[in-house]
């Protein structure tokens, strides 16, 4: 449970956002949000539903435009990017793991095809090597090689989620957005998935921006935590500091409710 932040401080952030504001009609979804993430860092955004954390993820990944603010990827303005550039980014340097694996998988395509798609999208044209990589990734996410030609709809929820992770990581993205990746899974399955995410992110030196309402998951995975409430970041800092010594009353409430559970 030791955070694995590689080199603390001083690094240029990969992704950096400032002054994000967004309203849905009368409801503020983001108020003056700033966030950054450096290479190899795992950052968790926690808060209850409606706190704006999923909206923040969508804005950071360029899926949704804010009313004000900037998002920069390695100095590039994400919000000014054309769709083509953004899609290219999304299938090369970025990855997105959806809460519902059905949103991130092609259910009518075999497991191997699902993993291979990103490779083919960036130009891989050798069937044998695509298949080899698919097999190696299935092994990494603990899916038996014999299932490579099966359709994901024959998989359990946890397997589908692991397949989604393999499909996302196969092109070695630098940054992966994860939206409640363990939501909707049984507790035992959740634990196994969290372990997997933790070991893969370490092994690959991935940066992960993970949205979760699960404080325990955040503690296990994250180097740093942002606590959101009603569109605002109310507290942020190193995971141990925020969870062991919460300053904001809302964070205290979140932490105590976990302890009570």
């Amino acid at each position: 449970m030791t955070p694995h932040r590689p080199e603390a401080g001083g690094l240029t952030p990969l992704l950096e956002a400032q002054g994000l504001n967004l309203r849905f009609g009368a409801i503020p979804a983001l108020i003056d949000v700033a966030i950054d993430i450096t290479a190899g860092e795992v950052v968790a955004i926690v808060g209850e539903s409606g706190s704006g954390k999923t909206t923040l993820l969508r804005v950071l990944s360029g899926m949704m435009a804010p009313d004000a603010g900037t998002v920069q990827w390695l100095g590039q303005d994400v919000l000014a990017m054309g769709e083509a550039a953004r899609r290219r980014l999304m299938r090369t340097e970025w990855g997105f793991v959806h809460q519902n694996p059905r949103d991130g998988l092609r259910l009518a395509v075999s497991a191997g095809g699902n993993v291979g798609e990103r490779l083919m999208a960036v130009g891989a044209r050798h069937y044998g090597s695509i298949r080899e990589q698919a097999l190696s990734w299935l092994a990494k996410v603990e899916i038996d090689a014999s299932r490579i030609d099966d359709l994901p709809r024959t998989f359990s929820g946890g397997m589908q989620q692991r397949l989604q992770i393999a499909r996302t990581l196969v092109t070695h993205p630098k940054l992966v957005f994860m939206d409640e990746p363990t939501g909707g899974l049984d507790v035992s399955v959740q634990a196994r998935l969290l372990d997997l995410i933790r070991s893969l992110s370490r092994e690959l030196g991935l940066s992960v921006l993970i949205v979760t309402h699960d404080i325990a998951a955040a503690r296990l995975l994250a180097d740093r935590i942002l606590v959101m409430r009603r569109g605002r970041v109310v507290e942020q800092g190193l995971t141990d500091r925020v969870l062991d010594d919460p300053q904001h009353p809302y964070t205290q409430l979140l932490v105590s409710s976990v302890l009570a559970a």
Partner: peptide
């Protein structure tokens, strides 16, 4: 966007099956 990965996936599936 010349985003034709999908077509290759179909061909991949044929070979796999």
């Amino acid at each position: 966007l010349a985003d034709y990965g999908l077509m290759h996936v179909r061909l991949y599936e044929d070979i796999a099956r």
